[in-house]
Design a protein around this nucleic acid. Structure first.
Lengths: 214, 214
DNA sequence: AGTCATATTAAACAGGTGTTTAAAATCTAC
DNA sequence: GTAGATTTTAAACACCTGTTTAATATGACT
């Protein structure tokens, strides 16, 4: 067997950069192979199709991230009094660990996540539920423990709102950081952005329940 | 002059349906003209380009929505003690008024908004700021009045988080409503969804300020 | 009726897309 | 060193995109 590393890796690296910049659909295989310095056809040879390439790019990060997140959750579940803020803070370490996978890994991953969710709607949702359902289940359990009075359906709503906040924020993180810098002289890193958003979502999820008309 | 109505209107109606369903980039002019029952070239004849068609579709709703929202804000600014919840509630009436523009108008508009923001990033943001900057300015002022201790930069962050929550929720409203129905036996309308999200974003925006490391 | 601007149409245009093919190159192992 | 599997390559494929062209049709007005 030939060294299977370089071309396949070059494709993954180039693809993830371009995907994060411009989204999945607006990135062509010719752009990817151009930046990677490999032949166009090698994408289909190594990955089968563009769809599978996208999945491979995401998986590289998801494996690391979800594994660490799972551990964070386990640690938290053995804690006596869990605060909601702690639940969301436990996302931070697994996230920043991605910078060790690749330079700027955390930023890229979050942007990819945002792209994936808004580009393909249902597809990624299903992928998440089937591959990482247990982790999500632990998240729900933890939230439920900190908010015992919140009905299950309300937890569902609020976690989805949270996902939206997070994904949207991260998908446009570049723009937000730039605006903050020019308009408010505030130099913000990705970590800083996360620190800003956590109090927001924690307050949202723990908002008082009121009676609704659906 | 010939009756300039039918074809141009047919195109707008067909385009907005398809845009809401599949996004701007995934909707082709041939799909639009096909559904509208008009010739392909008539899009370029009447609107110039696809980009201008997208703008026209959005404008039809934005004019009505922003005008009403502006009035709601004006009314609120003359009120003695404004609550944050009131600020976000004032979005509801202008929104539901869109159902009079066209059937399902409110849903379509929100989906379009979500599509526009995630599809094209900067372009729409600029369009908003230049065309409806005064209305946004009033929103910031109202929020500032209800949260006097919140720094300007923090208001900026939290309103953007709110935009993300809203846009994401509405862009995937169909899926969310369907999940709520199957998993929780909860029949939710669009109005109901809005009622769910308002307490969440109100709590998020009014979250206590803490010291950050950026 | 005839004029003229407006509107519609079929056809082609130029460029981009993901994927497939079959030949050439490369590496591994006997 | 040669056989055999693996990888790389250039080229073509079939299809789709938004836009333009030039001819035709339609309507209002004198």
């Amino acid at each position: 067997m030939k060294r299977t590393q370089p071309t396949k890796l070059m494709i993954l690296d180039a693809a993830e950069e371009l995907f994060a910049e411009s989204g999945f659909k607006d990135t062509s295989l010719r752009q990817i192979t151009g930046r990677a310095g490999v032949n166009l056809a090698s994408v289909n040879y190594h990955f089968g199709s563009k769809k599978e390439l996208i999945q491979s790019v995401l998986e590289r990060y998801l494996q690391v991230f979800m594994h660490r997140l799972n551990e964070s959750f386990d640690a938290l579940m053995n804690t006596a009094s869990v605060k909601l803020h702690d639940v969301f803070t436990s996302f931070v370490e697994p996230l920043l660990a991605l910078d060790e996978v690749r330079p700027k890994g955390a930023t890229v991953f979050l942007q990819l996540l945002g792209r994936g969710y808004t580009d393909s709607q249902g597809h990624l949702r299903w992928y998440f539920a089937t591959h990482y359902g247990e982790v999500l289940e632990k998240l729900v359990q933890l939230v439920k423990r900190t908010q015992p009075d919140l009905p299950d359906s309300e937890i569902f709503w609020r976690l989805h709102f949270t996902l939206g906040t997070f994904v949207f924020t991260m998908a446009s993180s570049d723009a937000l950081i730039e605006i903050a810098e020019t308009d408010f002289d505030e130099a913000v890193s990705l970590q800083g952005l996360v620190n800003h958003v956590i109090p927001y979502i924690a307050a949202g999820v723990s908002a008082p329940v009121v009676g609704f008309k659906n």
